[in-house]
Design a protein around this nucleic acid. Structure first.
Ligand SMILES: [Zn+2]
Ligand SMILES: [Zn+2]
Ligand SMILES: [Zn+2]
Ligand SMILES: [Zn+2]
Lengths: 137, 137
DNA sequence: GATAATTCCTCTAGTGACTAGAGCTACAAG
DNA sequence: CTTGTAGCTCTAGTCACTAGAGGAATTATC
């Protein structure tokens, strides 16, 4: 039996975050001690590690909730789980594309400033006028 | 004299967002009509276009506030403006790096699943165990 | 000039995934 | 047995908006 602090130390998930996940329905409400403190077991540890890893990979809470629900039906086909991962990959790629466009424009803007007065600052001018940009964003 | 709706149409910034920017101190409180409605002039249009473009490039509101303040002192050196842009570029690059790591792991995870049952699903297994990952994230 | 449609006003609350803090209680170590 | 740490619940704050309520002003139509 682990306290919430023990669980926190072992998984690297902060104590308030564990309570938050319980509230969000990602982990079941834990048993309580006589004094109303949460007590966890080994499988809670695994569950929380799963959640943490999924969050580290950028999945959001509804997606994780769905994956947990799926993982409790081992006989179902895994198409839905695979789709969740694939959709997330697509979203990640779209974010990368957008950020690369920003990176490109910012590089250009910064390199065009000769760094004297605000009056001549290319950063300020470029921000005032999207027409000076090379692409959309 | 433009109404807030006119300003919105001309800049592509939604009406509530314009009021929000006023509240955040990015644009000065506009003059009002007899009936208490905001009335804007040409320079408000430029200011709002500046804000919009800076937001589109991913700058946050405190950074934009600082850039606006700087732009009102044309004789100052522009090092601070340049630094704001450079810091932002650094942040964008860091985000790209993180997302690329995620992209890599997700590609790997998805390609390893042969897509039968949940029981054998590599997506679920990989989420359960970061040890299966190639890198950190 | 009356009426209707649209736009505007302020204020509050919701978004996602936590995080911080207040005020209180339980438990472990000395 | 006292002290210190850890736990409890509840509320509010983060960021940059967005949605909605309830009401007033403006514009368009007749
Ligand atoms: Zn400059
Ligand atoms: Zn641009
Ligand atoms: Zn699978
Ligand atoms: Zn991993």
């Amino acid at each position: 039996m682990l306290s919430i602090g023990d669980l926190s130390k072992r998984t690297g998930v902060k104590v308030p975050t564990i309570r938050y996940y319980e509230q969000m329905g990602l982990i079941e409400a834990a048993e309580r001690s006589e004094g109303n403190q949460r007590r966890y077991e080994r499988n809670d540890l695994e569950r929380l590690a799963f959640i943490r890893h999924a969050r580290d990979l950028g999945l959001d809470i509804p997606a994780i909730r769905e994956l947990i629900a799926l993982s409790q039906h081992p006989d179902l086909p895994c198409a839905n789980a695979d789709r969740i991962a694939a959709d997330h990959l697509t979203a990640v790629r779209e974010k990368i594309e957008k950020l690369k466009k920003l990176e490109h424009e910012l590089e250009r803007i910064i390199s065009h400033c000769d760094g004297h007065s605000i009056e001549d600052c290319y950063v300020i001018r470029a921000l005032s006028d999207h027409g000076l940009c090379e692409g959309e964003h």
